[in-house]
Amino acid sequence: MGEDGFFDGFLGTTDVFLTAIWQTLFMALVSIVAAGLIGLALGIALYATRPGNLFGNRLVFGVLGFVVNLVRPIPFIIFLAAIGPLQRAVVGSTIGTNAVTFAISLAAAFAVSRIVEQSLVGVDPGVVEAARAVGASRTAILFTVVVPEGLGPLVLGYTFIFVGIVDMSAQAGLVGGGGLGDYAITYGSQRYDWGIVYVSVAAIVVIVQVGQLIGNRIARGVLRR
């Protein structure tokens, strides 16, 4: 290399850096939305089918719980490799940003589902009873009482997951997904260019902080207490 300044390596690769930021943001934002929706549906199903709840069904609850517990402990890097066939079927490729985004969305959805379930289980059974007492249907109770009542903790849970998603996106480089993690490793640490590593770290910290800030704002608005 031979440059003199600490940040010379970074300054020479700003186009790669900007692309990496865009890739990380793309992976994180698409994943939080996709995982958020899939996880929400899965979490609501887990809550609703819990024995004794609105749509209590021991079998469905058991199967859902088993699948979620099966997938969640798998380290992301192994998960990424393991879902290759599924990626090829859905995204058409096992490499690149889109393939990684698909993998992150799926992995995060299982984590989101547990957080959604926990938020909903925390809803006071008294308000569910109050809704039943006025003649609301089970579906109406689920979507007009349980979900809105559990929304505050839910938003905080999503913020928590966002950090995990940014973490997962850093491993995208392994399968050509790009992003800040890839930039930090291939341009930074592998070339002993610590300037690039620290700039990447700083960029990721900023992304996470902004995500946290937005999540807290929304949660405060929803919680109103």
Partner: peptide, 26 residues
Amino acid sequence: IGMIFQQFNLFRSRTVAGNVAYPLRV
């Protein structure tokens, strides 16, 4: 049949008016 409760069981995600209107929405 109306019902009231010891712990009130109001919907925290709704305003006072929203709580009262809920049975009418249903």
